[in-house]
Simulated scan of single mutants.
Amino acid sequence: MSSIDYSKYLQYLDFNPEIAYAIVTISFNPIFWNIVARLEFKNHFLTKLTGSPYRGCYLLAATIFSLGIYRDSIYHGALLNQPTYEPWLDNTIVKSLAILLFSFGNILVLSSMYALGVTGTYLGDYFGILMKERVEGFPFNIDNNPMYNGSTLCFLATALWYAKPMGILVSLFVFIMYKIALLFEEPFTAFIYENRDIYEKKDL
């Protein structure tokens, strides 16, 4: 039985400094917003800095959004310099799939932002800005974490559109990073809401 020659596939995975930096930016973002949100919850430093929990949350939201734009641009640029896998990925069917995934991913992200609002999307609960009730409509009725999963689909769609195998691996890394982030976020958010009488800001 002849062994499989994996070297011909590895040539399509170029772990260069650009892709390494893209991975750094992908890792940094959820680490950053979890640390900052926890510090705000414990010390209210953004609330004190801006004079209001709402302004503090908006400042964090603008920062997270800007970091996300920067991360996406770094990822996009790094992908363009990766080898293209023409035999299987560079065709009309895969590009059509990429369009569908990108569209659905953005629907999940944008609809969840609309349903949650700015403070609901950008960790307002750490500022004592709690939602009155759990959002159960679309897209939360089909996905518990539409923001993270939608973002992951957009990463994957971009990789498929450009036919870059490394992009597929990076998309898997994005998925794993978001899962790790949820291990920290979900229990803590549940704790805040279980004790909402203590942590909710009544006079915002």
Rank of each mutant, 00 (worst) to 15 (best):
K42I: 05
G117R: 04
Y75K: 00
M1S: 05
V170A: 10
M113F: 14
E194V: 01
F175H: 12
T158I: 03
A20T: 09
Y199N: 01
D197A: 13
I69D: 00
I176W: 10
H44C: 11
F191I: 09
Y21S: 06
E200N: 04
A37W: 00
P30K: 10
Y6F: 15
I23W: 00
S151G: 12
E194D: 12
L67R: 09
S66A: 15
N29D: 03
N34Q: 05
W33S: 02
D5W: 04
L100H: 01
I168C: 10
L160F: 06
L123W: 14
I168V: 15
A61D: 10
I176M: 12
S112E: 03
V94D: 00
L100W: 07
L59M: 15
N195H: 14
E200L: 05
A159D: 02
P53R: 09
Y6H: 05
C154G: 00
A115G: 09
K201R: 13
S171N: 08
Q82A: 04
A78F: 04
S2I: 07
Y12E: 05
N145W: 06
F32G: 08
A78L: 07
K42R: 10
L10H: 07
L100A: 11
T50H: 10
F138R: 11
F191G: 02
G124E: 13
K48V: 11
S171V: 07
L67Y: 09
I74F: 02
L153M: 11
L13Y: 15
F45Q: 11
F28L: 15
K164W: 02
N149V: 07
L49I: 00
V36N: 02
V174S: 05
G137N: 12
S111V: 01
I35S: 07
V118D: 13
L100Q: 02
N106L: 15
I192K: 05
L108Y: 12
T119L: 03
V170P: 03
I69W: 08
T47Y: 01
Y162P: 04
A181G: 09
E200F: 00
N16K: 07
V36M: 10
L49C: 11
K42G: 00
T119D: 10
R55N: 08
L80R: 06
I198F: 08
G124W: 11
L182K: 09
T92F: 00
R71M: 10
A163E: 03
N81A: 02
E200M: 06
F28C: 12
Y6R: 04
Y12F: 15
H76Y: 10
E200G: 01
Y126H: 15
T121S: 14
V135F: 08
D203F: 13
A61K: 13
L123F: 14
T92L: 04
T119A: 13
F32R: 02
G105F: 08
T92E: 12
A78V: 01
A181K: 06
T189P: 01
R196G: 00
A190V: 04
N106G: 15
G128E: 05
A157M: 06
A20I: 14
L123R: 05
L116P: 01
